[in-house]
Amino acid sequence: MEDVSKLIVIGGSWGGIQAALSVLQPLPANYSIPIVLVLHRLRNQEGGLQELFERKLNLKALEIEEKEKPEPGHVYLAPANYHVLLEKDHTFSLDDSELENYSRPSIDVTFTSAADVFGENTVGILLSGASRDGSSGLKYIFEKQGLVIAQDPAEAEVATMPLAAINSIPGCSIMNVAQIQSFLLSLHEH
């Protein structure tokens, strides 16, 4: 199995689950780039999310396992209460260290480690959310020449998260859900 060269990382909090479902719905089952999804959820909330994404999407939805390698056609969900990092060998590692931005999983942690491994081949997308988590990670992806997108704050259920990113990254693309869908479809290699 060859290493994938690109990675899409998506973060969201309040309103992010619905936004993520909308963004990912049109993607085909054979979508050519793996997607990692970090959504804030209650720490004691078990499962449910994977089943929801599995039901609504063409992609295969999996909760991330230690040492697993991201593969095309899959959306990988950060498990509750773990930070998700990407290692140099392109595998996932799970970490239960301190909360970052009051969150575990922290979007910043995943975005930063993805940019360290995939560099300019990282696409970071920050969706609706009520915290500032994700903006420094998105900025880091931008600094590593990756592509960065924030959901249009006017459309987001809670604008705090995308606004924080837009305010800290001068080159951040601002897109609504329909534009993010089109953009992701344009990246797909048939």
Results as ranks from 00 to 15, higher is better:
A164R: 07
A165Y: 00
D133L: 02
L147Q: 10
F118I: 03
D89G: 06
A164I: 05
P105Y: 04
F118D: 01
Q145H: 14
A165S: 13
A154E: 15
F142Y: 13
V117N: 07
F111M: 10
T112P: 08
G137S: 01
T110L: 08
T110K: 02
A114Q: 04
L99E: 14
F92N: 01
T91Y: 02
G124A: 14
I149N: 00
A165F: 02
S136I: 07
N101C: 06
K144C: 15
S131R: 11
A159M: 14
A156D: 08
S97W: 08
Y102G: 05
A164C: 05
P153H: 12
N121Q: 12
D133H: 07
A154H: 12
Q145L: 15
Y102R: 10
P153F: 04
L127D: 05
R132W: 08
Q151W: 06
K88H: 11
G137W: 00
P153A: 09
Y140C: 01
Y102M: 12
D152F: 06
D95H: 13
S113W: 03
A150Q: 06
P153S: 11
A156M: 08
I141M: 09
K88Y: 15
G134K: 01
A114P: 13
V148K: 01
M161T: 08
Y140A: 00
K88R: 15
D152V: 13
L126A: 05
L126S: 06
S106V: 01
F92C: 08
S97P: 11
P105K: 04
A130H: 09
K139F: 05
Q151K: 10
P153I: 10
E87M: 14
E157W: 12
S135I: 03
V158A: 11
A159F: 10
S97V: 03
D89Y: 10
R104T: 07
R132A: 09
G146V: 03
V117L: 11
A159K: 10
S97Q: 15
D95C: 15
T110P: 05
V123H: 04
A165C: 07
A150F: 04
D89K: 11
K144I: 07
A165K: 00
